[in-house]
Write a protein that binds this DNA or RNA. Structure first.
Length: 598
DNA sequence: AGCACGCCGACT
DNA sequence: GTCGGCGTGCTC
């Protein structure tokens, strides 16, 4: 059936389709005719197969809109088939993917690959047969915080930095707070998304929700699930809620029905950085989604990052007053060399070990093993770090538990022991640790990174939050303003100071960065165009023909800079290609907001 | 990815 | 004139 010029097409006869292709030049909507036989199943959100005539093949895609007319030049092809009538791409998620891609000169289908799980035919068949599960209301008294969130408040907040008891087990204060907020949002009939950095944090949050009134409403989405479980949760999220969707960074894209608020724990944690193009962090996606949907947003963190503080200072986020409670931090005395453990710290560890576990935070996995070895748990090491070695030797007979990437411990039993953990792997102790020893601060601060000071403060603060009330937290070998901040717990003052420094230097988060890399002949003209939009070149690296130029620009110029970069990438996509025997030239690439400059 | 088209040099 | 190589641009 052909639609001759002038003939009125049947209503809903044209479908707009986003193609599943990483090519920037295919990153727009394509119009296709809907054959009458497929008219019942073609709806926004379904997966389809469509012809791409030039290549003489078909492409996968999603219908994002259905209409009566097309502005496309030439005549339209027919949709080849509907892969499945199950709606998997919610309109809200499509809009979000588009915005996330646009912010960083990326391709929307790259975002969709993160946001929509792979199809599981068996799951979808079962879904069609069984229908959506029954929605059950959540019976609870919503807190004032939840009430504010569902009306669209945007908040930056610090949690109570100590472990709390929830249903007979111990979780971080942050997990209890996020669980309470999510329960309240669900009790108001709205869905909540809670995104946390890693699997351990997710388990803690799940535990905090498991015995509460929203336990039946929890949908977990994370990488440890099978593809079938992931798709089931994805489909369930779209049914009438309320749902509490919990997960890692991809959860921020969940198609949660009637979304009331997005809650993000520890937005500055590197696990929130997406390693796939266009590399959007949980925080940036959450900010875009909040803006599009008007839902609430809560960014809860052990510390205040300069990035979030900037949003507070420009008035985008409200700053919720910090809880009065703070850990008992002991700084090293000035007269003790930084390489030695002060005698007061020795005494504190000895005293604490009489009553409960002591957490020792170290920088690297090897250091944890060294403490254990020195404590006589195994033959002595050859190159034991000095302080670590000393520590282990000082408490012979005390059980030592190592917690690092290889030895994963979510929580430990009560009772005296030394728990030596690399930063980020610290187990929860029931009731909290009797003392916390932050051993490797100097080495952590020596790392070269734009974010070292913020990272160290966050790692220390997170470990300090595992201490029991009144338990001492000893920072070894570090002075200066980061140490002082830990002791005074003036976390927002620290963030203000960081931000002021970055404003003076014109570095992130005061400005945004983009890195353009590829052959000089492609990079040079694009950089010139970005500069014309107000960007400024701040660094250039050149390794045999491949250059990488870093530019900075103001947030206000962001959308223009990204649009120009995208146009450049489209042009470069059709640049000269040598015949197969010749090696392909390095492609032109633009990466927005690289975590580290240059 | 792979195909069409058009610009330009070389030949009848 | 016109054949054809190859670089460019397009794919609803």
């Amino acid at each position: 059936m052909s639609d001759a010029a002038g003939a009125a097409p049947a209503p809903g006869a044209i479908a707009r389709v986003v193609l599943d292709s990483p090519l920037p030049r295919l990153d727009h909507l394509f119009d296709y005719r809907v054959p009458p036989a497929l008219a019942d199943e073609v709806r926004p959100g379904v997966r389809v197969k469509v012809p791409l005539r030039v290549a003489g093949r078909s492409a996968d895609g999603y219908v994002v809109d259905v209409g009566d007319t097309s502005d496309a030049p030439g005549r339209l092809s027919d949709i080849e088939k509907v892969v499945s009538p199950v709606v998997v791409l919610a309109p809200e998620v499509w809009r979000l993917a588009r915005a996330v891609a646009d912010r960083s000169a990326g391709v929307a289908s790259d975002v969709l690959r993160i946001a929509v799980p792979k199809r599981q035919a068996r799951v979808e068949h079962r879904w069609l047969k069984d229908g959506a599960p029954e929605a059950t209301p959540v019976e609870a008294e919503p807190s004032a915080a939840s009430e504010a969130l569902v009306t669209g408040s945007r908040l930056a907040a610090l949690p109570t930095p100590r472990p709390v008891e929830v249903a007979g087990t111990t979780v971080g204060g942050w997990a209890a707070e996020l669980a309470e907020a999510a329960v309240g949002i669900a009790a108001l009939g709205r869905s909540a998304i809670v995104a946390v950095p890693d699997r351990r944090d997710l388990d803690q949050l799940a535990l905090a929700l498991a015995h509460g009134p929203a336990a039946h409403a929890v949908l977990r989405v994370d990488a440890t699930q099978t593809p079938a479980e992931r798709e089931r949760a994805h489909l369930a999220a779209m049914t009438p809620g309320p749902h509490v969707v919990i997960g890692n960074r991809a959860a921020v894209y969940a198609p949660a029905a009637d979304l009331g608020a997005i809650l993000v724990w520890e937005e500055a944690d590197p696990f929130h950085l997406e390693p796939l193009a266009p590399y959007a962090s949980t925080r940036d996606v959450a900010l875009l989604r909040q803006e599009q949907s008007g839902c609430g947003l809560l960014l809860l963190g052990s510390t205040r990052s300069s990035t979030v503080q900037r949003l507070v200072r420009v008035g985008w986020l409200a700053d919720r007053p910090a809880p009065r409670y703070r850990p008992e931090v002991v700084l090293p005395p000035d007269d003790v060399p930084a390489t030695r453990i002060p005698s007061a710290t020795w005494r504190a560890v000895r005293t604490a070990l009489a009553t409960g576990p002591v957490l020792v935070q170290v920088a690297r996995p090897g250091d944890a093993a060294r403490v254990a070895l020195a404590a006589g748990q195994a033959p002595p090491p050859i190159d034991a770090g000095r302080t670590a070695h000393e520590l282990g030797r000082a408490f012979p007979g005390v059980p030592v538990l190592v917690a690092d990437g290889e030895h994963v411990h979510d929580r430990i039993e009560a009772g005296p022991r030394l728990v030596v953990a690399t930063r980020g792997a610290e187990p929860i102790a029931p009731g909290g640790y009797a003392a916390v020893l932050l051993l490797d601060g100097r080495r952590m601060l020596a790392r070269e990174s734009l974010w070292v000071e913020e990272d160290c403060l966050r790692w220390w603060a997170a470990a300090a939050a595992l201490a029991a009330p009144k338990a001492p937290v000893h920072l070894v070998g570090v002075g200066g303003h980061v140490a002082t901040t830990l002791a005074t717990w003036r976390l927002t003052d620290f963030a203000d100071r960081q931000l002021a420094d970055r404003r003076a230097l014109r570095f992130p988060p005061a400005v945004r960065l983009a890195a353009v890399s590829g052959p000089l002949a492609a990079v040079e003209p694009l950089v010139a165009e970005l500069v014309a939009e107000g960007a400024q070149e701040i660094g250039r690296a050149d390794e045999d023909g491949l250059v990488r130029v870093t530019v900075r620009f103001d947030y206000a110029a962001g959308s223009r800079v990204a649009a120009v970069a995208k146009a450049g990438l489209i042009r470069a996509g059709s640049a000269r290609r040598p015949k197969p025997p010749a090696p392909p030239p390095p492609a032109l690439r633009v990466r927005f907001d690289p975590h580290e400059p240059i």
